[in-house]
């Protein structure tokens, strides 16, 4: 089954290698992995999409949890989440089909972000199914290049899984007790 895993990590060098190493050591392919700073610049969030045997993934998640630089790990697949991806598409758009391409773009509320006589660059944001659908419709015009960010996802819970104000214990089966303790700022 496909899993969307959200991992809060220390914003250090080497953490990405450590996390991705746990997947690669088992010959597990990561479908997508995005990393970015959170509301706390000393913490990064990784959103990892991976397919595979549930037991193996469960084991990987436990081992991720064991890494010292991993602050918290959440399997978003198990709850309601909002997931989005951003895609840039360079599509052929010579004059005679250009209006057809623009029609597809408008239907999907996508955006044209660059124009030249031969092609357009389109920016699409949305769920994966929306993106797959628009790519399908653009394909007949001739897609020259696709760049995808990979999925980012957020829990719908109002308290969510934000970076703990002070510090938090690591999740052990959803344990979310934030413990008031001082943390040194860099």
């Amino acid at each position: 089954m496909r899993h969307v895993i959200s991992v809060l990590v220390e914003n250090h060098f080497g953490v990405l290698a450590h996390v991705s190493g746990l997947f690669s050591a088992r010959g597990f392919n990561i479908d997508s992995l995005t990393v970015g700073e959170t509301e706390d610049p000393s913490v990064s969030r990784m959103t990892i999409v991976a397919k595979g045997d549930d037991r193996v993934l469960d084991q990987i998640m436990k081992q991720l949890d064991r890494l010292v630089d991993v602050i918290r790990i959440i399997d978003l697949t198990k709850e309601e989440m909002i997931a989005r991806e951003l895609v840039l598409v360079k599509v052929n758009a010579p004059a005679k089909v250009r209006s057809d391409v623009i029609q597809v773009v408008n239907t999907f509320r996508a955006k044209i972000v660059d124009v030249n006589p031969k092609n357009l660059i389109i920016e699409i944001t949305g769920t994966e199914s929306k993106i797959d659908a628009i790519l399908e419709l653009l394909r007949p015009f001739g897609i020259r290049e696709v760049v995808r960010t990979g999925l980012v996802a957020m829990s719908r819970q109002s308290d969510g899984y934000k970076v703990p104000a002070h510090t938090a214990a690591k999740s052990e089966e959803g344990e979310r007790a934030a413990r008031p303790a001082k943390r040194k700022k860099k």
Partner: peptide, 13 residues
Amino acid sequence: VEIRGYRPKTIRT
């Protein structure tokens, strides 16, 4: 020592 990603406990469950 304060490591937010590492807090060993005597008994967790």
